[in-house]
Amino acid sequence: MELVVTIFVFGLLLFMIVMLEGELMEHARKMPINYMTHPEVMSVIARLRRDVVDSYRYPPSYNTYKQGKRTLIVESMLSTGFSETVVWDFTVAGESRRLSYNVGNLSAEWVARGTPQFEIDSYQMPNGAVAVRLDAWDDKGKLAIDQIIQPRAH
């Protein structure tokens, strides 16, 4: 009798654990990256959003960089009155590099590592304006980031 009760209680606990784990694993399979465990992903989005929203021009190239799927170049104004060119370089897998140039000189560099592969695209707005579309896929090919960002009116 004691043995039956013991097996029943532990069987019940085991069943609960298996059910919970199964449900969590099923959800983890469906979802892309866990946003809550890697704050750098959101840092990239926030910084890039600010750069695009503040920008007034998308130069076709800058130094050795050219606009493309893995590179975004924007020009924006600084509070000092000078213009700044910001290059977002996603050519290295797992790295998101922000380079800002002031009067031709590199003034700041910021790198986030372990990020999903970001890609840049354009998005045509209903009023004809061209927005930046930032996409990212996790290592399993699931779409993790999809952001449409339009420069604000200056």
Partner: peptide, 10 residues
């Protein structure tokens, strides 16, 4: 957020 960007420009 994406939809907001589009709706604002209609």
């Amino acid at each position: 957020a994406n939809e907001t960007e589009v709706e604002r420009r209609l």
